[in-house]
Design a protein around this nucleic acid. Sequence first.
RNA 1: GCGGACGUGGCGAAAUCGGUAUACGCAGCAGACUUAAAAUCUGCCGUCCUCGUGACAUGCGGGUUCAAGUCCCGCCGUCCGCACCA
Length: 854
Amino acid sequence: MTREPRFGALAADARWQAAWEAANSFATGDSADAEGEGRPKAYILEMFPYPSGRIHMGHVRNYAMGDVLARFKRMTGHDVLHPMGWDAFGMPAENAAMEKGVHPGGWTRDNIASMRAQLKRLGLAIDWSRELATCEPDYYGQEQALFLDLFAAGLVTRKHSYVNWDPVDMTVLANEQVIDGRGWRSGALVEKKKLSQWFLKITDFADELLEGLQALDKWPDKVRLMQENWIGKSQGLEFSFRLAGGAPGFDVFTTRPDTLYGASFAAISPDHPLAESLARDAPELAAFIEECRRQGTAAEQIDTAEKMGFDTGLSVEHPLDPDWHLPVWVVNYVLMDYGTGAIFGCPAHDQRDLDFARKYELPVHRVIADGEETGQHFTGDEAWTGPGRLVNSHFLDGMSIDEAKAAVIARAEHEGWGKGTTVWRLRDWGVSRQRYWGTPIPFIHCDACGLVPVPKSQLPVVLPEDADFSVPGNPLDRHPTWKHVACPSCGGEAVRETDTLDTFVDSSWYFLRFASAPSDKPFDPEVIRRWLPVDQYIGGIEHAILHLLYARFWTRALNKLGMIDIEEPFASLFTQGMVTHETYSREQGEGLPPLYFTPDEVARTADGATLESDGAPVDVGRVVKMSKSKKNVVDPDAILDQYGADAARWFMLSDSPPERDLPWSEAGIEGAWRFVQRLWRIFGDTEKTGDGAEDKGLARKLHQTIAGVAADIESLGFNKAVAKIHALANDIEKAPPSATRAEACRTLILLVAPMLPHLAEEAWAALPEGQRTTAMIADAAWPAADPAMLVDDEVTIAIQMAGKLRDTMTAAKGADRAALEAAALARPRIAELLGGKAPKKVIVVPDRLVNIVP
RNA sequence: GCGGACGUGGCGAAAUCGGUAUACGCAGCAGACUUAAAAUCUGCCGUCCUCGUGACAUGCGGGUUCAAGUCCCGCCGUCCGCACCA
């Protein structure tokens, strides 16, 4: 092969992508294959994409990172599983169907085809034979089978719950789809509606999902903490209030039973059954409840919402003193779906209760001492929630808060009016969606037999192709024939469940199906045992809670069913940062939003930017996540056309640490492209051996770089690996020709192979006969770093006086303390600075520094 | 409000164990090559001054230490998560 003076990226991309495909280079054998035996496995997985239509730069970054790791693992002798698939169900497809009159399936499959082509242009080392799409019956049919297994194990329930109902689109909305109390698409006022919904009993696993976080030491602390807060374990006392006079009242939950003597009222939620029953005879209360329900739950509304209450006129007995009666209020800040939907109010030591008590002029009694402050009369508008001894609390006086909590719980349990209990923030996972484009829930409703699971022999329950999307609502529900079936149990007339599963169910087990995808069952446990858990999972922080928690739950549930051995699906998790870009805009005047321009429309200069169409300046705004609304998006296809896959991959891996945001810039991608060309020139020097001599300094640098880059890739420190490769390239270029230099040029090809696979293949193929160990570099081994070369035999020693650098000297590696001290003191400059006096103290750190304290 | 992360040149950043701060890149400046441009190469590139093996610099103010970007305390700022969670 004749060597071109410049690297022709576009031709090389196509050539090597075809070569890898022809050679089936990245296929992963099943465990039965002898190929995998003896080699350690590495399951590298990036979160699979939603097929929205086009890939974006965030995908490029995500998949470039995973690909570097997968290719590196192959080079270091691992049996690698690196698959790709599509999270293909979901609302956008159905919205497209409604807006453009296309079928969701056609729309989705077209998108998959074009995105697959785009991904292939990146040159990813993926086993495409394992590709899956969750919208295909061979996937969702197996999901239905798993759902039936969970049902049989008692982990699926149906219950009534309040949902956000859009009366125009006739569908349930997720909380994120409710904007200012209105449906995000229809703009209609959202109603609270009670519907019978399917739930997965994730709360059964609350404790182990929480405990399990501790073992996930290769997850970011941030994600573990977010999950911990989401699960939200609280321990406290649950007890019953009796109505004054002795009639049964209601249960309350508190984490502060120690403050029970500070109670001044009891409060129930507007949604509490007691409030609802009282409202039937009290129009004013009914009106109050109605007003509370209209209040939004968005963050800013809660911030500004005032505490509101309605005095029911009822009162309850204080559990520790039946003669002490507390008024019962209905208040807007008590939530029905946390705890028991009722509380006792202790204003002195809870800010919300204090705000409420001050507004309605209820008593405020101190029961926790604030330093010297022990008086019962509490003043001010700031509740005391800090530590202190119990005061004004009878038998609790003098105890610490923890002692008092334990004492009250013990007494409640002894006297039988309450018990110590644990309350979770985590709710059961509502998986019902009144949508077409999702996995049909495999159940049948029969008037005679009730709820009947679809027999596994009748799976998959396939979506009908001929659905009607011209009007709002659930197309499955109004389909003329689909839902009408014979009951599998009695054979009588029955109807199918028309709800479909939340798409988070689809993504809760796809990593199992990648490893093993038999046609007659969800997966083969033997194969799962070989590949799982995923060794490295990479994706966006936006999935820190829901997806990752659901996948953890699903894995534990299957474990409980005895179907798999593992408890946690992802051994190591990495959350990568976003790709960002400057924004370009012009103000349009008062009250109007700024007008944004795309990077293509703008010419960037060193100190500003101008619009190309009129030559006048535009405002250069903040660097933010690429988004259509800000128009600061760069299309990966255009970049690949111009610079090729390797330059794009290199830029994605350079400069910014992978967990941080990466600011995309034209200058940056051009710099990456220039470096690719520079490497190409260096790779052409593998025969320039000069007189054949060794270059010891360069050899050290080479071996240190081999070891350093390997360590950086293992720890996903791609930006550091890039810097080390740059530094080595600089040294090679500066070094005179030698046998070592020629060797370094050859080795450098291997070092960049995981990141720049097309360039590396091209350079590998262009090597002179006999310099290649394998036909393709995709099958080559990572170079070995010689341990003897990793340490220098001379080191530079810093000489400090009182901690400030004053001189440096070279010394033999490993020189002892006395020798270093003597050498340092003998330096003319140090002697001069000491002025003949003996130093007070000398600290010697071997191989690093000598610090002299004068 | 609660919880968390971060703050180092004009910019992205490095410093892995408390031990020579600013590696590597981008942008910029000067020069070489060229009729010219591109490409490429060489050098400079934290601030200040008295231009030195000088002083000062890692958001601000303290502290521990022979030694602090790194550890501790208190502020300020930015970003993220959760949120009337009892």
